[in-house]
Design a protein around this nucleic acid. Structure first.
Lengths: 249, 249
DNA sequence: ACAAATCTTTGAGTTAGGTCAATTACTCCG
DNA sequence: CGGAGTAATTGACCTAACTCAAAGATTTGT
């Protein structure tokens, strides 16, 4: 089944056609069962939902859906990584989020009327997603209102996270935005140092943080030169987050 | 009952102490009944919820709650206007949202554990809010799972709106961010022109859009000089939104 | 393993927007 | 109505970040 087709070779220019197949084995199911949105659903109901879903393999840079397309499905990432982005009228591609295995996305549209995707979604590398029919999930909730609470919690958390993302973007200078972004990536926040893996290629982190790739690169070089950071490909080591916070003022 | 107390005279420096009184008349109730979060709730249940709530009068610049405070209530705006903001470690105040009469806010925390406010909330002018106990609302949902769907819709919409706000902030230049912000304020978006009232004083719109008040003022002056905008206090008249969009590229 | 493509870094020059300062215009009070 | 306190505007200056360009590194596909 072809879901989407376009030409091109770079970010924002998706390539291929999706091919799905039944999701009838257990791969990736464990992660799904432990997701906040599903962990309270009885096995029988969950299996039923899964059987109405399809597993989709996505190639590198492959588009999953387009902004404004009717949203008949939402997704759970089994493996790989995706990004959400929007295209403005001048064709500039602005990255808004990245999605890791174990995450759900596009689920915010479930009750919208008409349900439409709010952005583009594409695979950053070859990935596998579970494609859950919105209707099947809605029916499940209608038949079992007690499941709605988990969904409510999930949506509320999502809204708070978006609010937090928005806050970072009101920081006026590029270096401080980047520092805040990095600290949020640390497993324990500013509490303690650690290694951080950028969830996106550097040029897309730059886009996410409303700066040019050159600016991103220079800021990172500067932090490195000042001993605040060690960089290894897309892995950054932050030994003292507090020092980072101090200089960001 | 004192809810909060601080000293100072400007934005981010709240002043007074809240005094509440029972919400036992019908003022503002119509708007509440038609809010998406409440309109499906049976009269009896809604009245019960309202009787467990308190009406709160807030003075100009009065603080309603603080970031990180335990969130025992969420709020519905009866009259006036509020803003949500965060304070960073260096004391800089960053405005994230404004709330108009008929809106609900802080409701995103309902199922958080522990529930805490994600930001500060203060009145921009003298205002009246309904202060709804989180526990009462949760109990209502627990007893009547069929009410959860409206809540789900509301939260989903909220998450999508925050996502959209985030998108605007990834626009890299100040003028285009402002243009996008103004077009979103238009009743019919870019479809047709109209008058727009800024929901915040100009210096706070600037803060919301990650720019200095001086920059905001200069951009507005420039748009005005180019005949793209007419300015009257906090009211802006945009005759041709399409032209605005064209120049923002 | 190689070639092609894309991503990243660095340099040099330019500009948008921040900073500081001073004036003017509002708004809220008494 | 008048005065105090903010908010908004404008000018001059400066710096952070953008643009353009080119070299280097990494990744992907054959």
């Amino acid at each position: 089944m072809g879901l989407m087709q376009t030409t091109g070779t770079r970010y924002s220019k998706p390539i291929l056609v999706a091919v799905n197949k039944p999701f009838d084995d257990e791969d990736g199911l464990q992660a799904l069962r432990s997701h906040p949105l599903f962990r309270n659903i009885r096995s029988r109901d969950l299996e039923d939902l899964i059987h109405q879903s399809r597993r989709l393999r996505l190639g590198h840079h492959q588009l999953l859906y387009r902004q404004d397309m009717p949203a008949h499905h939402f997704f759970f990432v089994i493996s790989g990584r995706l990004r959400l982005y929007r295209l403005d009228s001048s064709g500039i591609d602005r990255t808004l989020d990245s999605i890791a295995p174990g995450d759900c996305f596009a689920e915010v549209m479930i009750y919208a009327d008409p349900p439409r995707y709010a952005c583009y979604a594409e695979a950053l590398k070859s990935s596998e997603v579970l494609m859950i029919p919105v209707k099947a999930y809605r029916d499940l909730l209608d038949r079992n209102p007690e499941y709605a609470q988990a969904a409510l919690e999930h949506y509320a958390r999502r809204a708070v996270n978006r609010f937090h993302d928005l806050e970072i973007m009101t920081v006026q200078n590029a270096r401080d935005r980047l520092i805040r972004y990095l600290i949020d990536l640390l497993p324990n926040g500013a509490e303690e140092g650690g290694e951080v893996e950028l969830p996106l290629p550097k040029c897309l982190v730059a886009s996410r943080l409303a700066m040019q790739p050159e600016t991103f690169s220079r800021i990172l070089a500067d932090l490195k030169a000042n001993g605040l950071l060690r960089v290894n490909r897309s892995k950054l080591f932050i030994s003292d987050p507090q020092r980072l916070i101090q200089i960001s003022q």
